[in-house]
């Protein structure tokens, strides 16, 4: 399942620059809002769901080569975070949905914990 299919199914808003999302297939799903846990627990190339919108999420996503980050509950993402993500080629999505709902829907779509 590609990021394009996921973004379409969940109605995710892409915050970062346009790119071909049909070419990216997340390896797994992961969720935590504590970056130290993410750094040690998120599978490589996985799709990370969080409501933490601090700029440090970009560095963590780049470090683990995550497929994308879905920022939930409409958490405010500042311009500096988006600029940093574009610079590091990290894909950020935003959604008003809760982390629970996003994870549930991704599971239904067939994504697993890895």
């Amino acid at each position: 399942m590609t990021l394009a299919q996921i973004a379409n199914a969940l109605g995710l808003a892409l915050l970062t620059q346009e790119q071909d999302l049909t070419q990216i297939t997340p390896s797994a799903g992961y969720t935590s809002d504590m970056l130290s846990c993410v750094m040690s627990g998120a599978p490589q190339k996985s799709l990370w769901i969080t409501l933490q919108a601090h700029v440090n999420i970009v560095a963590v996503a780049a470090l683990l080569e995550l497929s994308a980050v879905i920022i939930t509950e409409g958490a405010a993402v500042d311009a500096a975070t988006i600029a940093k993500a574009n610079e590091k080629n990290v894909i950020l999505f935003s959604t008003p949905l809760s982390t629970f709902e996003v994870a549930g829907r991704l599971w239904e779509l067939g994504l697993r914990a890895g």
Binding site: D33, M34, L35, S36, V38, Q52, H54, A59, V60, A80
Partner: peptide
């Protein structure tokens, strides 16, 4: 800070 944000934010 370290648990929540992983490291001291550069900005």
């Amino acid at each position: 800070l370290i648990q929540t944000l992983g490291f001291v934010p550069e900005d």
